[in-house]
Simulated assay, not measured.
Amino acid sequence: MIAGTRGRVVLLGGGAVGSLIGGGLAAAGHDVVLVDGWHDHVEAIRANGLLMTTPEGAQRVRLQAWHLGDAHRLRDAGAEVAFLTVKLYDTDWAAALLATWLPSSVPIVTLQNALVEERVARFVGHGRTLGGIGSGLDVFMAGPGEVRRTRKRGAAGGAVFKIGEMHGRRTPRAEAIAALLSDVDTATVTSDLWTERWVKLTANTMTSGLSGLTGLSLKAVYSRDDTRRIAIRLGAEAISLGRAMGFALERLFGLPGEAWISAAAGDAEATATAMDAMAVQAASMVEGGMSGTLQDLSKGRPTEVAFFNGFIAAEAARLGLAAPTHARVAALIAEAEAGTLRLGLGNLDLITAGTTVT
Rank of each mutant, 00 (worst) to 15 (best):
L50P: 07
L50K: 04
L51A: 14
T53S: 15
T53K: 09
A58C: 14
V61N: 07
L63F: 09
Q64A: 15
W66Q: 11
G69N: 11
D70Y: 13
A71T: 11
H72F: 14
H72C: 09
H72V: 11
L74D: 09
A79H: 08
T85K: 01
T85N: 05
Y89K: 10
L97G: 08
L98I: 08
A99E: 13
T100V: 11
P103G: 15
S104F: 13
S104W: 12
T110I: 02
T110H: 03
Q112S: 05
N113R: 13
E118C: 08
R119C: 10
R122M: 15
H126L: 14
G127F: 06
G127R: 14
G127A: 10
R128K: 15
G132P: 05
G132V: 00
S135H: 02
G136V: 03
G136H: 02
L137S: 07
F140N: 04
F140D: 04
P144V: 13
G145N: 07
G145D: 05
V147G: 07
K152R: 15
V160Q: 01
I163C: 00
E165C: 06
H167L: 12
G168T: 05
R169N: 12
T171P: 10
R173G: 09
E175Q: 14
A176G: 10
A176R: 03
A179R: 03
D183Q: 02
D185I: 00
D185Q: 02
A187N: 03
T188L: 07
T188F: 04
T188D: 06
T190F: 06
T190Q: 09
L193C: 09
L193K: 01
W194R: 07
R197H: 02
R197P: 03
R197G: 00
